[in-house]
């Protein structure tokens, strides 16, 4: 049997904080080129799943492979957009500088960013519609603008896989549309996007692939096949009814 090309393959992954498992025996194959939502209730381990793919969280069992190799060997192929609240926005720097941080990975230790990196950052800012705010102190940006800056920073990493932790949290409808359009464009360019998502209503509209997660993996597959009340109920515990437009 021939194996489908996949971006990320997770085998028997278990992560625990102290004795409490946060992720339990997850097996997951994420095909290349999908725009995938990870959905699940609070405490389901969605962020932890992303962090263990990135090696920020150490699993107690199991393995993660990125294009067939451990993440450590594929650092430059993966871009990460953390939750907006994970950093201190009072940090003394401007929007452009934060976006340039995305180029640090390819620069490596000691080497400084130069004109080339600045150009990349400006292009990314333009893509997310934030060019005019490039010199703005980051604390002076609105929540949606901060999220776009994070997205731009991931864009300059020019990765093959994008991992995003709740990019729509606390952003207005306009920004949400702008972000999803960029994500769809990235998918068209063959990138794989993995997004922790909360708003179940928009899953069928935004994503083509979905993973249901609640400590254990519930289901994973194309939205049109598996995004149904049955899986939602299994994931959220209560009898869930979502208006899925078909």
């Amino acid at each position: 049997m021939r194996e489908e090309p996949y971006a990320i393959k997770i085998d028997d992954l278990t992560v625990a904080y102290n004795y409490k498992p946060v992720l339990w025996d997850i097996d997951l194959v994420i095909p290349e080129g999908v725009l995938m939502a990870i959905v699940g209730p609070n405490g389901a381990g969605k962020s932890t799943l992303i962090k263990s793919i990135l090696g920020i969280v150490k699993p107690i069992a199991g393995s993660v492979q990125v294009f067939g190799k451990p993440y450590k060997k594929q650092v430059d192929k993966v871009a990460y957009v953390p939750q907006k609240g994970s950093v201190d926005w009072d940090f003394p720097t401007i929007a452009l500088d934060v976006v340039m941080m995305g180029t640090y990975g390819s620069l490596g230790w000691i080497k400084r960013p130069g004109q080339k990196e600045k150009k990349q950052a400006l292009e990314a800012l333009e893509k997310v519609g934030m060019l005019e705010f490039r010199d703005r102190q980051i604390s002076q940006l609105s929540g949606g603008q901060q999220q776009r800056i994070f997205l731009a920073r991931a864009l300059v990493q020019n990765a093959s896989i994008y991992l995003m932790d709740e990019p729509f949290q606390g952003v207005d409808a306009t920004t949400e549309k702008a972000i999803i359009n960029i994500l769809k464009e990235l998918r068209k360019a063959g990138k794989t996007l993995i997004v922790v998502h909360h708003d179940l209503q928009t899953v069928p509209e935004y994503f083509d692939w979905v993973t249901f997660l609640n400590v254990k993996g519930i289901a994973s597959g194309p939205v049109k096949d598996i995004f149904n009340d049955d899986n939602l109920t299994k994931t959220y515990g209560i009898n869930y009814k979502v208006a899925v437009n078909k």
């Binding site: 090696g55 650092v75 990460y80 953390p82 940090f91 490596g108 230790w109 400084r112």
Partner: peptide, 22 residues
Amino acid sequence: ILFFKELKLSTFDKGLAATLGF
């Protein structure tokens, strides 16, 4: 002077620093 970039990054965003290999 040598590690300004690295210090800035890891001070602002530890998570990104880790994923970029710093």
